[in-house]
């Protein structure tokens, strides 16, 4: 599809509709982003904003920029955010109680004032009639951009490329962990393993009649669960000790109720509306626990 034709069609016909829809969506998403407690939710809402902005760029006769926005910004940068969130700890919820006195009030006032001033300035500005990019995009938006980029702004282009290299190097340096001890060789690792408390490999998670998942702990010969069989990161999020409820003579409803109680205890029930909304379906407990597959 010719992007220019696409842009022209949208400019004339449905532009106001698209604009208003996306405006409402993006503003709501932005507001939600700053009000969300969980960081992951905020990141996803930012993705919504970015995508709606991409559509707006397309409406504004900037198709190249629209795709770059989706690919680079939403696809790369935002994903980078999500990765770091995962590494830092996605379970850490922000308390929404403000510690600095008057910060919220003044931030709201400043924000309202700022936006009011900007809007007043913009509204009062005498803007010339929109020229449209028909002529600039005559050879296609990409060609037009390229013409500008490699002639008028070539120096900035070069500097930006240097910046990217520097950023990559900087990130490598910052994320680098200096090895304080020499890298353990295979021989040293073996030695340590045999000198440690369990030379044999750890047991893997269990596979049972009702449950089969990575977070299902294995059973020891005496009937107790083995904490060692579950990955510690997963074990931090689940109560591995109480996994095998059916082995302890409870019914499925009881097991489900215990699961729900455990979930509630793990998250803040008072403010967490999600947990209250969730219905208790028989045998389908929530919040990342098991019963995934049968």
């Amino acid at each position: 599809m010719n992007p220019t034709l696409l842009a022209e069609a949208q400019t004339h016909a449905a532009e106001p509709f698209v604009f208003w829809l996306l405006a409402i969506v993006s503003v709501s998403a932005a507001l939600g982003m700053i009000l969300m407690r969980k960081a992951v939710h905020a990141a996803l809402l930012l993705a919504v904003v970015m995508l709606s902005l991409a559509v707006l760029y397309a409406v504004l006769e900037a198709p190249f920029l629209a795709f770059v926005q989706v690919i680079v910004y939403t696809g790369a940068v935002l994903m980078l955010f999500l990765f770091v969130l995962m590494l830092v700890g996605v379970s850490s919820t922000d308390s929404l109680v403000e510690t600095i006195r008057g910060q919220r009030l003044w931030a709201a006032l400043a924000g309202l004032g700022f936006v009011g001033l900007l809007a007043a300035g913009v509204a009062g500005a005498a803007l010339p009639t929109t020229a449209g990019l028909a002529r600039a995009n005559a050879e296609g938006n990409v060609v037009g951009l390229a013409r500008l980029l490699f002639t008028k702004y070539v120096f900035a282009f070069e500097v930006a490329s240097a910046l990217l290299i520097t950023a990559a190097l900087g990130a490598m340096v910052l994320a680098h962990r200096e090895r304080l001890a020499p890298k353990a060789t295979q021989r040293a690792l073996s030695k340590a393993r045999f000198l440690g408390d369990h030379p044999t490999p750890l047991p893997g998670p269990g596979t049972y009649a009702r449950h089969n998942a990575v977070d299902m702990p294995a059973l020891l010969p005496d009937g107790t669960t083995s904490e060692l069989s579950v990955n510690p990161i997963i074990a931090r999020r689940t109560a591995t000790a109480g996994m095998h409820t059916d082995l302890e003579g409870r019914t499925e409803e009881q097991a489900a109720g215990d699961d729900i109680a455990a979930v509630r205890a793990a998250t803040d029930t008072a403010a967490d509306a999600d947990a209250q909304d969730r219905e208790v379906k028989a045998g389908v407990p929530t919040a990342g626990n098991k019963e995934a597959g049968k």
Binding site: I100, W106, A107, A110, F114, L117, L118
Partner: peptide, 18 residues
């Protein structure tokens, strides 16, 4: 707190725009 400083910067920016 960095946020207080950011607030004062923001207020200053609003004043400059005004």
């Amino acid at each position: 707190f960095v946020r207080s400083y950011a607030l004062s910067m923001f207020l200053g920016a609003a004043l400059v725009v005004a």
